[in-house]
Design a protein around this nucleic acid. Structure first.
Length: 593
RNA sequence: GGGGGCGUAGUUAAGUUGGUUAUAACGCCGGCCUGUCACGCCGGAGGUCGCGAGUUCGAGUCUCGUCGCUCCCGCCA
């Protein structure tokens, strides 16, 4: 680069007000349009795109150089900002009223032909995009997602700083914890055969910070879980983690929902109404078949077991007799469901274990349905009333075990809504789900496991139930849900050693084991631990909501594939035997290369 | 661990019932072009049909296996 050359402006920020000024831009060539005489270059940087004109009459040497430039060359240009001729203005470009009359061009670096075209229109294969992530990240769409992510993080810091929170870092090399997800392990060289674990969350450390008296802690922090991935799950992801002392649940909810309201306002200008709706877990499960209901649209689930229990229709009567349920939802007219659609729903729910989807189309002339003949007029009328069915509506029904019915009908609700475009766009429907059970029975392990995590406080009035009927104990836990996505969750924690021990007992964590795994926490609770509680948001998921990204990959600079690999760096990779020897590790032969 | 979808030129896709030299667009290379902005016009190069077996006179197409990407179930306190 020519000595002393300095960028004076971003491409995307050149405006009419700059006309007459000499400016210097540096960026990448988006496009060259060579008319033989005149050459136009679209120059791009992180702020946007600006058109540069090269006229052979201005400077033949500069013009000749511009003809050599190709897509994605990194260049610097110097020239005068001029207003474009009246009929040559580009209304679709932010900088479309002006252009730069180039006087100098410097090729800072040439570029090979890219492995794919940088266009928002062309969908390139995921593996290739990730292999050349640094090129894919040049696309304005992806780049803007990352920039918005930065703004969202700034919001978090501003809001929490103002609310008196202190940012504290916690260790990445820590102790493997049972309960919960599979850990990513890191071998210790100094203690061969021993391993650190990367944190699934800073849970225990933030509780210790409360015991230390920091009172309000937060951290924007990486967490790691070695489980199979989904579009909304990456093996390493970022949490907005926070914890407070001396606050009750309502106060924690107030503070944290204020954070989300601020974030949506500051980043995308969306106003969310406060306070957020609070829905019980039981209501969420029964009406939406999910603990993360999407309440942007209605189409609730209704239990009709009581109405149809006594019919000659075997599917209904035997389901109820065997302790199952029959639930239905009403797809309101004018939504049209073809026979093909209805058949496809059966395939859709099969993966959730449902035998099939029954349906009834209700019109002025009556019910069209495989089971209508088994129902009395009175039963039909009761169903119509419960589901607010009007002529033209279609009812979908699934029968079976309660959990399976909720899972399949809840998923079908989302599937149908998507298919029929019943979900309003650019709408954000936040709510709190509260009143989760503290424990659930795990059939595989034949023991109770914590629904949230084992440090969650039970509802005070349920503490006695711990020893008599653990399944009935409610937790002081809460999840924030936006548009059917769980974006955050937390709880009031146990701050008494005795209660903590009791919960460990109930989940079958013996004294010895508890001491080995969590002894440090149990002991810490004995030194004046304050009442405390907190929450963690899934930052990536929040940014995905803010940007409308369909996958978390689109809001993470360097994400992993669904198999948790990185095509860019080729991680994970094998390592030298010497490196392994130092760690006291031997790889099984079947895994070598 | 299980189920679905995809894999053809650098990229995105088409490719019929298994049958001649595997198409198109964009990109790339060469030429022309002074108001383009999806610039235009003329010409050209470019293929391990993911990989490996099998069936067949003959496989991009059928079968089996395998790898990769993706969506979902299980899993993810």
């Amino acid at each position: 680069m020519k000595a002393g050359m300095k960028r004076t402006k971003y491409c995307g920020e050149v405006t009419k007000d700059d006309c007459g000024k000499k400016i210097t831009l540096m960026g990448w060539v988006q496009k060259r349009r060579d008319l033989g005489g005149l050459v136009f270059l679209d120059l791009r940087d992180r702020a946007g795109i600006c058109q540069i004109v090269f006229n052979p009459e201005t400077d033949p040497e500069t013009h000749a150089l511009a003809q050599k430039v190709k897509a994605e060359y990194c260049i610097a240009i110097k020239g005068e900002v001029v207003l474009r001729p009246e009929d040559m203005r580009n209304k679709t470009m932010n900088t479309g009223d002006v252009e730069i009359l180039a006087e100098e061009i410097h090729i800072l670096n040439e570029a090979k032909t890219l492995p794919f075209v940088l266009s928002e229109e062309v969908e390139v294969g995921e593996a290739l995009k990730l292999q050349y992530r640094y090129l894919d990240l040049r696309k304005p769409g992806l780049q803007n997602n990352i920039i918005l992510r930065h703004k969202a993080a700034q919001c978090v810091r501003t809001y929490l700083n103002d609310a008196g929170f202190i940012e504290v870092e916690t260790p990445m090399l820590t102790k493997s914890t049972p309960e919960g997800a599979r850990d990513y392990l890191v071998p210790s060289r100094i203690f061969p055969g021993h391993f650190f674990a990367l944190p699934q969350s800073p849970q225990l450390f933030k509780q210790l910070l409360m015991i230390s008296g920091f009172d309000r802690y937060y951290q924007i922090v990486k967490c790691f879980r070695d489980e199979d991935l989904r579009a909304d799950r990456q093996p390493e992801f970022t949490q907005i983690d926070l914890e407070t002392s001396f606050l009750e649940m309502d106060e924690i909810l107030d503070i944290t929902e204020g954070l989300i309201v601020d974030m949506f306002k500051e980043t995308i200008g969306v106003d969310m109404k406060q306070p957020f709706l609070r829905m019980s877990y039981d209501e969420a499960m029964s009406s939406y078949g999910a603990d993360k209901p999407d309440i942007r649209f209605d189409m609730k689930l209704f239990d009709i077991s009581d109405i149809v229990a006594k019919t000659d229709f075997g599917v209904f009567s035997s389901t109820v007799a065997n302790g199952g349920v029959i639930k239905a939802m009403n797809v309101k007219a004018p939504a049209e469901l073809s026979r093909k659609d209805l058949d496809s729903f059966g395939v859709f729910v099969a993966t959730f274990g449902a035998k099939g989807v029954m349906w009834a189309k209700i019109s002025d002339t009556g019910w069209q349905s495989s089971f209508a003949k088994f129902l009395s007029d009175d039963q039909k009328k009761k169903i119509e009333e419960r589901l607010s069915i009007k002529p033209g509506d279609t009812m979908l029904v699934i029968a079976g075990k309660k959990e399976m019915v909720n899972a399949s009908l809840g998923a079908l609700r989302l599937h149908v809504a998507e298919k029929l475009s019943l979900i309003p766009e650019n709408t954000y429907a936040p709510l709190w789900v509260i009143g989760f059970p503290l424990l659930e029975w795990n059939e595989d392990e034949k023991r109770f496991v914590a629904v949230h995590h084992p440090f969650t406080a039970p509802a005070i009035e349920d503490i006695d139930l711990l020893s008599t009927d653990p399944a009935k104990v409610k937790a002081q836990a809460y999840d924030m849900v936006i548009n059917g996505q769980e974006v955050g969750g937390g709880s009031v924690r146990i701050h008494s050693r005795d209660l903590q021990k009791k919960v460990f007992d109930v989940i079958g964590l013996g004294e010895e084991e508890a001491k080995y795994k969590f002894g440090f926490l149990l002991e810490a609770l004995e030194y004046g631990a304050p009442p405390h509680g907190g929450l963690a948001f899934g930052f990536d998921r929040l940014v995905a909501l803010l940007t409308g990204a369909k996958s978390l990959r689109d809001v993470i600079a360097f994400p992993k594939t669904q198999k948790a690999a990185c095509p860019l760096t080729q991680a994970p990779s094998s390592v030298d035997d010497a490196q392994l020897a130092e760690l006291g590790i031997k790889v099984l032969d079947k895994y070598k290369n």
